[in-house]
Computed example of a mutant assay.
Amino acid sequence: MHARALAATTTALLGTAAFLPPTADVRADAAVKRPTVIAHRGASAYAPENTLAAVDKAAALGIDWVENDVQRTKDGKLVVLHDDNLRRTTDAEEVFPSRAPWKVRDFTAAEIARLDAGSWFGPAYAGARVPTLAQYVRRVDVHQQKLLLEIKNPDLYPGIEGQTLKVLGNEGWLDRRHVAGRLIVQSFSAPSVRAVHQLKPAVKTGLLGTPSVANLPAYAVFADQINPSYRSLSSGYVSTVHAFTGPHGRPLEIFTWTVDTAATARRVAGYGVDGVITNKPDVVRTALGGN
């Protein structure tokens, strides 16, 4: 651990770091950097999550970054869906009534493509489909957006890290332009994040969760970000994370989730986070002083 990391760690552990009040405003001085705003599962407060419509809505709001989730089908295709089953966000229960518990891994990509992934959200989105990862990144590219991609449940899908990178490569997302500033791959699984880094060291990676300070040196070897829930954050923890240097020679970053109110957005920005993941990116952007 670097000396500056040790000092910050000591401060955090002793609890001497100051906490900003919940309504603290982001100062407009040069020392405060406005966090990046990331549309969680697309602009998911306004369109069905993880669909192309949610990507389009984020683009219409002028949001550069979108976040998504990747699962794998029975026939080995990658689809964009948060849950490991199809019940909550599709009509799988109606279309395939005898296929309980409707796990993604028990359905082929062609079967999933038949499902309505929009009606649950509202009639205006009836007929929206679960996109494949290839379809999703193409739409993100159309809008010249950037992607925070989460590998979901990697224990259910052995080898999904390499497969995800293969799809990204086939779609042109591993070229210098994308890797340099338009792509981050994250997961709650440290082994999964490590696998992505080992397979493609140039790709920026993030570890979801709030790991202990003692584990940060090990994670900094292969993760560029530590991405916790906003409920677990303090200014001391953020400072401690920033004190470590990641695999690409830069301080570790923090993207926090899932922030949907102006007051919370201002609070975590005051802590010094680098990004805010939100279902309501327009609300957060306005709270942080964006247009």
Rank of each mutant, 00 (worst) to 15 (best):
A8S: 15
T9W: 09
T11C: 14
A12L: 13
A18Y: 00
T23P: 00
A24N: 02
K33E: 14
V37C: 08
A39F: 03
A39H: 02
A39L: 05
H40M: 09
S44K: 02
A53E: 15
A53G: 04
V55P: 05
D56M: 00
A59N: 09
A60W: 01
I63E: 12
N68E: 13
D69T: 05
T73E: 05
T73S: 11
K77D: 09
V80P: 01
L81A: 05
H82W: 07
D84E: 12
D91K: 06
E94P: 01
E94Y: 08
V95T: 14
S98N: 15
S98M: 10
P101K: 03
W102I: 04
R105E: 13
D106T: 15
T108I: 07
A109M: 04
E111M: 11
A113T: 00
G118Q: 06
F121A: 14
G127W: 08
R129I: 01
T132P: 03
Q135L: 02
Y136M: 09
V137S: 06
V137M: 07
R138D: 13
R138P: 00
R138L: 03
L149T: 15
I151K: 02
D155K: 12
L156N: 15
I160H: 03
T164A: 15
L165R: 05
L165F: 09
W173F: 08
D175F: 07
R176C: 01
G181C: 11
R182Y: 06
Q186M: 14
S187P: 10
S189L: 08
V193K: 04
A195E: 11
V196Q: 00
V196L: 01
Q198H: 00
S212N: 14
A220S: 15
F222D: 05
F222A: 01
D224F: 04
I226W: 03
N227G: 03
P228E: 03
S232Q: 15
L233K: 01
S235L: 09
G236M: 10
V238P: 06
V238I: 13
V241Y: 03
V241H: 01
F244P: 00
G246A: 11
G249Q: 05
G249D: 05
P251S: 13
E253W: 11
I254R: 00
T261L: 12
T261N: 09
A263Q: 14
T264V: 13
V268C: 08
D274N: 15
V276K: 02
I277C: 06
G289W: 08
G290Y: 15
